[in-house]
Amino acid sequence: MIRVVATGTFDILHPGHLYYLEESRELGDELFVIVARDANVKHKPRPILPEDQRLRMVRALRPVDHALLGDLHDMFRPIAEIRPDIITLGFNQHFDEEHLRQKLRERGLDADVVRIPGYPGSLASSSKIIERILNTRGAPGSTGPAGEE
């Protein structure tokens, strides 16, 4: 049985997230998804949805067999417990594949690292969705696009 681990923040689920998880699931027999903890998201704006809600949404997706929150202090702890054959990264995740492979080897983990290409849609990122909402629905208190009253 081939175990695959996918990781991410999964804030404001969108087609790009689903594509990433579907492509990850195609690589193995069982897909585990590690959802980033709110406190650990430091490389981009804090998530809009709290971690427990993001976890619940990811668990509800068809390609996902198991979903769990990441560890607050050691990102490799859940990976060591799952012992995956493959770890997938999204096209825009900030990990360097070779550095990640090295860190895994240092922990005695022999998982392949695979980068999943981006979803070919225009709204395949939470930040683009937020930008579109602000531009088309306006800021609070306005009646039109952002800045128009």
Rank of each mutant, 00 (worst) to 15 (best):
residue 2 I to R: 05
residue 2 I to K: 09
residue 4 V to K: 01
residue 6 A to F: 02
residue 7 T to N: 04
residue 9 T to P: 01
residue 16 G to Y: 04
residue 17 H to I: 03
residue 18 L to W: 05
residue 19 Y to S: 02
residue 20 Y to G: 00
residue 23 E to C: 04
residue 23 E to G: 02
residue 26 E to I: 11
residue 26 E to R: 13
residue 29 D to L: 14
residue 30 E to A: 14
residue 30 E to W: 15
residue 31 L to V: 09
residue 31 L to H: 06
residue 31 L to S: 07
residue 34 I to V: 14
residue 36 A to R: 03
residue 36 A to F: 06
residue 37 R to S: 10
residue 39 A to S: 13
residue 39 A to F: 05
residue 41 V to H: 04
residue 42 K to L: 11
residue 45 P to D: 11
residue 46 R to V: 10
residue 48 I to A: 12
residue 48 I to R: 14
residue 50 P to H: 06
residue 50 P to Y: 07
residue 50 P to M: 03
residue 54 R to E: 02
residue 56 R to Y: 07
residue 58 V to N: 01
residue 60 A to E: 07
residue 60 A to L: 07
residue 61 L to M: 09
residue 63 P to D: 05
residue 64 V to E: 01
residue 67 A to D: 00
residue 71 D to C: 01
residue 71 D to R: 01
residue 75 M to C: 03
residue 75 M to I: 11
residue 75 M to Y: 09
residue 76 F to A: 01
residue 77 R to C: 02
residue 80 A to Q: 05
residue 84 P to A: 05
residue 88 T to A: 00
residue 88 T to H: 00
residue 90 G to M: 00
residue 91 F to R: 01
residue 92 N to E: 11
residue 92 N to P: 03
residue 92 N to R: 06
residue 93 Q to H: 04
residue 95 F to D: 03
residue 96 D to A: 03
residue 101 R to E: 09
residue 102 Q to G: 13
residue 104 L to H: 08
residue 105 R to Q: 12
residue 105 R to P: 02
residue 108 G to D: 06
residue 112 D to G: 09
residue 113 V to D: 04
residue 113 V to R: 02
residue 114 V to T: 08
residue 114 V to N: 08
residue 116 I to L: 08
residue 117 P to I: 03
residue 118 G to M: 12
residue 121 G to V: 08
residue 121 G to R: 10
residue 123 L to E: 14
residue 125 S to V: 09
residue 126 S to Q: 12
residue 127 S to A: 15
residue 127 S to K: 13
residue 128 K to A: 15
residue 132 R to I: 11
residue 134 L to N: 09
residue 135 N to D: 15
residue 136 T to Y: 15
residue 137 R to V: 12
residue 142 S to T: 08
residue 142 S to P: 00
residue 146 A to N: 13
residue 147 G to E: 11
residue 147 G to I: 04
